[in-house]
């Protein structure tokens, strides 16, 4: 079986814009860090055509202007954690809290947003589900301990992108080879099409993530509820960013949670409660409680209702200092 490796660098020496998939038919895959794709290739034995994006000029560039900060799709998670800690602490803390040091070194922001689901049915070589060519979600009637607690879509496993969660709190946008200025929600959708983890077209490549200008004085906290020390997919994760005035009153904030729904959720109601408050005990408690409102757990995810509240409460108390 022959395999074609196309390097984007060979194809488009000027960068990613206007990049097309390979000519002809057949399975193909884009590859950046490879931390998701290589695992799936080994498990399935698939040999698709691979369009390898590394080495494209600007792929891993961070560009700061007055209008904001532009992150090339190939900026690594480790670079986010290291280089954005001052300007965008919510994103940096989230980046530093996911996976392991080696994965963070290799994985990219683009790949993190567009990775496939981590559901154990999807990753199993002998099952089929909505996302692997089947017509059902075997986890729904099967085992879904790590599944959604906001059960709003046919597929029950949460979206795996922690960075998408953090980007929601910044109202960041995404550029592709075909479109500019997409909201994160437009890229990931709402899960109503259970066959997809994102809504980009097959021949559309994510090129950049654009953040608004840094908010001076931003403080942030990130927490993932897991069973072990580190390096585990979150049961529930949460991130908060706040800006407070001299009196300690919250003037702006962003709160989002992951591990709970088909896509990460920005919590507008929680943000409304926090804004104008001094993050006093009562507000924190009410905000945390409201985070789980509307939860409709699956048979095995009832514990996540309490954990959503606990995890949001944790980040709020941490950011309060």
């Amino acid at each position: 079986m022959s395999v074609t490796i196309l390097t984007a660098y060979d194809q488009r020496p000027d960068g990613l814009d206007g990049l097309d998939g390979p000519d002809g038919t057949g399975e193909f895959a884009y590859r950046a860090g490879g931390t998701d794709l290589q695992e799936r290739l080994r498990t399935t034995g698939a040999t698709p055509h691979i369009l390898d994006l590394t080495g494209v000029p600007g792929f891993a560039a961070v560009e700061r202007t007055d209008d904001g900060t532009t992150l090339g799709a190939g900026v690594t998670v480790a670079a986010l954690a290291r280089d954005l800690a001052g300007d965008y602490p919510a994103l940096a803390l989230t980046a530093g809290g996911l996976a392991t040091p080696q994965v963070r070194t290799a994985a990219t922001i683009g790949g993190n947003l567009l990775q496939r689901t981590r559901c154990w049915y999807f990753r199993h070589p002998h099952t089929s589900c909505f996302k692997s060519g089947g017509d059902s979600c075997p986890a729904r009637d099967g085992r879904h301990l790590y599944g959604n607690v906001f059960d709003t879509a046919p597929c029950v496993h949460p979206h795996p992108s922690s960075l998408a969660m953090a980007l929601l709190t910044y109202a960041a946008t995404v550029d592709t080879t075909q479109r500019d200025g997409l909201a994160v929600g437009e890229v990931l959708g709402d899960g109503s099409d259970p066959t997809r983890d994102h809504l980009l077209a097959d021949d559309e490549v994510l090129t950049r993530v654009v953040l608004p200008p840094p908010a001076p004085g931003e403080q942030a906290a990130y927490f993932r509820s897991i069973s072990r020390f580190e390096a585990e997919w979150p049961l529930v994760e949460a991130v908060v960013r706040v800006v407070r005035d001299d009196a300690g009153t919250v003037t702006s904030c962003g709160v989002a949670i992951g591990g709970v729904a088909p896509v990460p959720l920005r919590l507008a109601a929680v943000e409304a409660l926090l804004t104008g408050s001094t993050l006093d005990d009562d507000t924190v408690a009410r905000a945390a409680a409201s985070a789980a409102q509307g939860a409709n757990p699956l048979p095995e995810t009832g514990y996540k209702v309490a954990l959503v509240e606990a995890t949001v409460r944790e980040v709020l108390e941490r950011v309060r200092g």
Binding site: R31, G33, G34, T35, Q38, E39, R42, T43, D52, A99, T100, P101, Q102, V103, T105, A106, A231
Partner: peptide, 23 residues
């Protein structure tokens, strides 16, 4: 084979990387 255990770690240009996930 899935980047969890680190047994395949090697240095590439001085950086530790996972041999199983690195193309």
């Amino acid at each position: 084979g899935s980047g969890v255990c680190g047994a395949c770690t090697m240095l590439v240009d001085g950086e530790p990387v996972l041999g199983c996930l690195t193309p």
